[in-house]
Simulated scan of single mutants.
Amino acid sequence: MGRSFRVSIPQRSFCHLRYRLALVLFIFVLFKQYHLFFIYRKALAAKYSPTELLQFTKEQTWMPDEESAHFQDRLVANRAAWRNLGEGREGKTFVYQDSVIKTFTPGRSPFRNCAPGVTDKVWPTEVPASLYFGGSEHNATSSFHGFLPVQAYFMAVSSASQAEWHLVTPLLKGGNLKDLAIEARKQKQPYRDIDAHHRPTFERLLHTLGNLHEAGYCHDDIKSSNIFVADDAHWILGDLGNLRQVSHPYHSSLLWRENKQLSDCRANDVMRALKSYMRFVRDSAIDADALNAEFFDGREPLSRLFWSSTANCSHLSAAELRAKSITEHPHLHANSMVKTGILLPAQSYTWLSIFSRRWGRHYAVNHALQTRMGEKLARWWALTGLFGVPITTVCGVRYP
């Protein structure tokens, strides 16, 4: 009879092996966290680095005149009458009479720029950016159009007993594109009529955006809630807090790429403006489902405009999109198929078409038109809860 042999491995060896594997895994995770910590700290530092605003001098942006000083005093004296509009990461927004007052709470979001003429004082980028592009309502200091003028800007103690920056601009009672869509929906119009009515206004907005780009800056946060309605024929670019020069390091950062933004920030602004306009038309229409159904076919003027722009978006300028918009005017025959020299959406964007059939056109169109830019994951890996957001702004140099 043959003998069977059993190899006996001590239980202790298995324990040692598990401990070693656990140690190796722990070291790997530690180094991975260490790596992610530094790359996301770097990405956030790029995002919150200053915008170069070399045009500003102490006289242009710091000293209010007598009229604006009286206006400021009246605002502060009537703080109890301010109506709260909302609250965001940077601070709060209020309405008082014909003015919108935006406050910036220290510590919520880093102030990226140094205030000229004052040592060691930082202020929100939106203040000097609004002054440059919108000018002062009391002094005509800007040659740009399509931006909100500044009624006042000052630092004052808020209801929370801390000093906060305040930026005051005129109240546009038409609200933003989201508000306009709600009102337009009550008219129960088809999307083709809405597009035909508002397309010239959108093209004027593109002209404003082109002026911003020609000055060497990108908006970086164009979306429906940041496009304001002055009247039926004019829309205003608002919320310039994310304004950055074209060469700003954020535009080549990991955070920018992870949010799938175009490498040319000007083309990125243009596509975000087009997406915002399309969402406005869709959300205003009584037949939104019809637009959703046609969106991936690319046979209507509006969807053709989107897909032809998307196919050549890497360096698309505001002027080029305006020209495309005129070519694809909504008064063209609804079902005429124009040969654009590009692949049809069903061929170029197969995964979106599949997504459309599987989950519903509404959600697929929402995905194609989304403008969200997040940084929650970056903040998590960068441990901003423990170490804060990395800040590279260094103040202390006085303007001559």
Rank of each mutant, 00 (worst) to 15 (best):
F37C: 09
F38A: 08
F38R: 09
F38C: 03
I39Q: 06
Y40R: 07
K42W: 07
A43I: 06
A43T: 11
L44M: 12
A45T: 01
K47C: 08
K47L: 12
K47N: 13
Y48L: 09
Y48C: 07
S49K: 10
S49T: 07
P50K: 09
T51K: 04
T51L: 04
L54E: 15
Q55N: 01
K58F: 08
E59K: 12
Q60W: 10
Q60R: 12
W62Y: 08
M63L: 14
M63Q: 14
D65N: 15
E67V: 06
S68D: 02
S68N: 01
S68V: 11
A69R: 13
A69N: 11
H70P: 03
F71Q: 04
D73S: 15
L75S: 11
V76P: 03
V76T: 04
A77N: 14
A77K: 15
A77H: 14
N78Q: 10
N78S: 10
R79Q: 07
A80Q: 15
A81W: 09
A81P: 12
W82G: 02
R83N: 10
L85V: 07
G86Y: 12
E87N: 08
E87Q: 13
E87L: 02
G88M: 06
R89T: 11
R89E: 10
R89A: 12
G91F: 09
K92Q: 04
K92R: 08
T93M: 09
F94I: 10
V95M: 10
V95L: 12
Q97S: 13
S99F: 13
V100C: 03
I101F: 04
I101Y: 01
I101E: 02
T103M: 00
F104P: 01
T105E: 13
R108K: 09
S109C: 07
F111A: 03
F111N: 05
F111L: 06
N113A: 04
N113P: 03
C114A: 03
A115P: 00
A115W: 09
P116K: 11
T119A: 14
T119D: 12
